[in-house]
């Protein structure tokens, strides 16, 4: 009997997911032994035509990482969906847009301006903006078209499983791969989260938690947190309470707030939930002062919370209730 087939693809992503996959260590040899790799641009020289040539459903397991932000990403999403029996949104970009999804806070034109023109390190005299179509003596050449809105994979094609994380923890990938290799039954497909917990991160975070009364917020560089005590209590906006567990609370244990890369809990909006939680523990004013003074005190505390969109929706914006900001940009 032929070996089952394996594919991995990167759309709008940084490549960290592939590194994390290789971080499973020697288990990767078992994967190589058990599967036939039929498409994996990062490590093997297959072409898109090769994939097009496979019969539908030819790929048994396809790990898709990266968000959909241009026409090439979308084309490959549809192609791999057609060719794969099991399509996994692998990592935060494919699952929820991740950092590329933050482009949804502005317009494409503004993003391109920032990258190619306004950046301090760009020599404006040599600015060249990528154009989808370029005329050359030999004819027209095309590059993929950049979309206005970044979308997670499941907003483009149906996804069977999701492995969250930026990147997914090697330990969790290994657990899933072992389950697949040993033929353990997976849960019913349909956008199902695997390789992560189902309770918030605090569950696996060993820091001591007390009641929370926040009087000002800090960015990580502003304080050296007291080790051993919940970071949120110390004013660092640790996203742990609204973030799915599974990573082992690696960041909080070394004094770095959880940024929320494992995404929201089932059916929740991560940013909204955390925002509501933070709003509930801001200790400003008190019932003895009038509403106006209280509002001012609250505003003063909230002013110390810099970059709320990037704090609460760093990973999940494109997959949240908000999806994107409405921006009027007439300069494009």
């Amino acid at each position: 009997m032929a070996k089952p087939t394996f594919a991995m693809y990167w759309a709008a992503s940084c490549g960290g997911c592939e590194i994390s996959l290789l971080n499973v260590g020697e288990l990767i040899l078992d994967v190589d032994a058990a599967f036939d790799v039929v498409f994996w641009p990062c490590v093997a020289d297959f072409k898109y035509q090769d994939v097009e040539g496979y019969p539908d459903g030819y790929i048994d397991l396809c790990l898709f990482n990266g968000a959909i932000r241009n026409s090439e990403n979308e084309e490959l999403a549809h192609l791999l969906r057609r060719k794969s029996k099991t399509l996994v949104a692998f990592g935060s970009c494919a699952y929820e847009g991740c950092a590329p999804g933050l482009a949804n806070l502005t317009t494409n034109a503004a993003t391109i301006r920032t990258v190619y023109t306004d950046s301090l390190t760009t020599d404006e005299s040599r600015t060249q903006v990528p154009r989808p179509v370029t005329q050359v003596p030999e004819g027209e050449i095309h590059i993929p078209v950049l979309y206005e809105t970044v979308r997670p994979l499941d907003q483009v094609v149906p996804v069977d499983y999701i492995i969250p994380g930026c990147p997914p923890e090697a330990r969790q990938i290994a657990a899933v791969l072992r389950a697949v290799l040993t033929g353990m039954p997976l849960p019913a497909p349909g956008g199902t989260i695997i390789g992560a917990g189902n309770v918030a991160l605090c569950e696996e975070c060993p820091l001591a938690k007390n009641v929370k009364q926040i009087t000002r917020f800090y960015r990580p560089y502003e304080i050296v947190p007291d080790p051993g005590i919940c970071l949120l209590e110390q004013g660092l906006v640790c996203m742990g309470p609204a973030t799915r567990s599974g990573c082992g609370a690696l960041c909080p244990q070394v004094g770095m707030r959880c940024e929320g890369c494992y995404g929201p809990l089932d059916g929740q909006d991560q940013g909204a939930r955390m925002l509501a939680a933070v709003a509930s523990v801001v200790a400003a004013g008190g019932s003895h002062i009038d509403e106006h003074a209280q509002a001012q005190e609250i505003a003063a505390v909230m002013d110390t919370l810099v970059d709320p969109a990037g704090t609460f929706y760093r990973f999940s914006l494109a997959h949240s209730l908000l999806r994107r900001a409405r921006v009027a940009d007439n300069s494009a």
């Binding site: 918030a200 742990g240 523990v281």
Partner: peptide, 8 residues
Amino acid sequence: SGCRICNT
């Protein structure tokens, strides 16, 4: 998860 946000 025992985060204690609700406690106060």
